[in-house]
């Protein structure tokens, strides 16, 4: 049984076809990367998995549970670390963490213990009594990852988790993510850092204009897609996943980095 099985997912927003029939299977215990330029459909796909976007067609199964018909069972197995810092603006972060544990069924004592462990692990314990507005950008990112781990999920979905994080912290997070993946957790990661995908992911899918255009191990993709054509842009490292990305999407990663964070109202 696959951890996540996506079949024929389509989604349109008015006249924009965000997903045009996506098929994807992510195996249990896999560290899977989803790469794509801005507006390719990465966040829409992740949101569909989490039940925050309702697909127009297709099905998604999480450990065999249909995310629409058996949403409750599916949601128990997953946790999302979104791009946006979507925590209560004025709640102390310790409370945010403790409530998160409770949402997934942990009693108060266990939630308190887990919150303390994770806040300490991510260097946020000293800030436990302040709200998100008093945290730096890097601290907010760490909080998001810590919160997503509160539920001890079997499947962890990370949407650009290291965006805007300094190099040292990024490498520290990579080591942490590798470790929790080795412990058996399935990880689905979207990133615009090619190096991140190369370092962490066993397999990578490249999504472009709402379709998966390639899906395989990074080395296989490199051998398949870097021989055929010369890179269409200069300053692209040859023989890397970045060259694969450029050849398949026609965009450089820097262009793909731009995203908008706006309240959805």
């Amino acid at each position: 049984m696959n951890a996540i099985e996506i079949s024929g997912i389509k989604k349109s927003f008015q006249n924009v076809h965000a997903l045009k029939g996506v098929d994807l299977a992510i195996r249990q215990g896999e560290f899977f990367g989803l790469l794509g330029p801005n507006g390719a459909g990465k966040t829409t796909l992740i949101s569909a998995i989490m039940g925050l976007v309702r697909p127009d067609a297709g099905t998604i199964q999480v450990m065999g549970y249909d995310t629409r018909r058996q949403a409750f069972a599916a949601k128990k197995l997953m946790a999302l670390c979104p791009q946006e810092i979507n925590v209560h603006t004025y709640f102390p972060i310790q409370k945010i963490m403790e409530f998160q544990g409770g949402f997934y069924g942990f009693d108060r004592k266990t939630s308190k213990q887990r919150a303390e462990e994770l806040l300490k692990r991510f260097g946020l314990w000293e800030k436990r009594k302040v709200g998100k507005v008093k945290l730096s950008g890097g601290m907010q990112r760490r909080l998001m990852i810590a919160r997503s781990l509160m539920s001890d999920p079997k499947i962890l979905i990370l949407d650009e988790p290291t965006a805007g994080v300094d190099v040292e912290l990024r490498h520290e997070l990579w080591d942490f993510l590798k470790k929790i993946n080795q412990n058996g957790r399935t990880i689905l990661l979207t990133t615009h850092y090619i190096e991140e995908a190369e370092q962490l992911c066993g397999r990578v899918a490249i999504i472009h204009e709402g379709k998966i255009v390639a899906c395989d191990a990074p080395q296989t993709l490199i051998s398949q897609h870097t021989q055929k054509a010369k890179p269409i842009r200069r300053f692209v490292r040859p023989g890397t996943l970045e060259e694969v990305f450029v050849n398949l999407t026609g965009k450089r990663m820097e262009e793909a980095q731009q995203w908008e964070i706006a309240p959805r109202l």
Partner: peptide, 18 residues
């Protein structure tokens, strides 16, 4: 509305809550 504004409602909707 505040939960919609700061998008914390998404976290509640993604959790196993009815």
């Amino acid at each position: 509305y505040m939960s919609r504004f700061d998008q914390s409602i998404d976290n509640m909707l993604a959790a196993p809550l009815r």
